[in-house]
């Protein structure tokens, strides 16, 4: 179990995270926030790349910084952007990282073979990575995070560059992995975590806004999300009055999904809120509408 205790991070006078407290058990946690909200800072603190300015992060009661290599031996980490050597093949690259993870060569070779199959890269295991697409590189990244069979798996924007089929495969892989470990997936793509996260953590204004199940978070907007159809000519006025979540043209009219925290008007259909609705509502800073 990881506990984030009153953690803050400052860069000079700039506060990147303020007094974050979290308790994380085995299972999948979706860390959801728009870009620049402090997700990567929190992730990097969990991965020991950044030291908290205040507070501490503990794993099974021990400070992860003090645990040093003992904690990192349990860790699998996929950064948002990661480097590789152009002239290395995935096998060479993974062998290098396996050595850094303290794995024996024989075990590494066997595990790398299995992982390359898992991420559908077996056929290109000996090809130079400089010829790989973004999605293939990302899959190598996922494979390296799993090399040491980590107890704590931290993935920062893991689906960047993956096509829909690869995303689906990745989600299945995560669900399978999360049975006996702690998986934290940081993303700004709601669909990546909506179906698989046991809990979603949302960060706003450098603080934790929600840490709850998808259902409970969605319930915060229960009864406030509607859909209706309006004339195209009324769209601007509608936008000015309500928080519009989705606009879709259909047969010369506009289908609108929106939020209203008051009495419903005629013709509005109350719908079940989704996680994306909550995301768009909570991070609506740039949407200037009356609710």
């Amino acid at each position: 179990m990881i506990v984030v205790k009153n953690v803050s991070k400052y860069y000079g006078n700039f506060c990147a995270l303020n007094n974050i407290t979290l308790e994380l058990h085995n299972g999948v946690y979706g860390l959801l926030a728009p870009n620049g909200a402090g997700k990567t800072t929190l992730i990097k603190m969990l991965a020991t790349l950044i030291t908290p300015s205040q507070g501490e992060i503990v794993y099974d009661g021990k400070n992860i910084i003090h645990m040093d290599d003992e904690f990192r031996a349990l860790l699998g980490y996929l950064p948002q952007q990661f480097g590789y050597y152009n002239n290395y093949s995935p096998k060479q690259y993974l062998l290098y990282l396996a050595a850094l993870k303290g794995m024996g060569r024989k075990d590494s070779i066997r595990i790398i073979k299995e992982l390359l199959e898992k991420v559908a890269l077996s056929e290109v295991g000996n090809k130079k990575m400089k010829k790989f697409s973004g999605g293939m590189i990302q899959r190598v990244g996922i494979a390296q995070a799993l090399l040491n069979n980590p107890k704590v798996l931290i993935l920062d924007e893991p689906t960047a560059g993956l096509d829909p089929k690869e995303r689906a495969r990745f989600r299945n892989l995560l669900s399978e992995l999360a049975r006996d470990r702690l998986v934290i997936v940081s993303t700004h793509i709601v669909s990546d975590v909506e179906s698989i996260a046991n809990e979603v953590i949302m960060i706003k204004h450098q603080e934790v806004l929600y840490k709850d199940s998808v259902e409970n978070i969605c319930n915060t907007l229960a009864g406030h999300v509607y859909e209706t159809t309006i004339d195209y000519g009324h769209l601007d006025a509608f936008r000015n009055r309500y928080t519009v979540l989705l606009e879709k043209q259909e047969s010369g009219e506009m289908n609108i999904r929106f939020i209203h925290k008051g009495a419903a008007a005629e013709g509005w259909l109350s719908v079940t809120p989704s996680l994306e609705d909550v995301f768009l509502y909570e991070y609506r800073d740039e949407i200037r509408m009356e609710v």
Binding site: A47, R72, G83, Y84, L100, G102, N148
Partner: peptide, 14 residues
Amino acid sequence: SRQLLDLQYTTRKG
């Protein structure tokens, strides 16, 4: 410059 430190420093070797 290749952003390899994130991966290298989060391994056991650190």
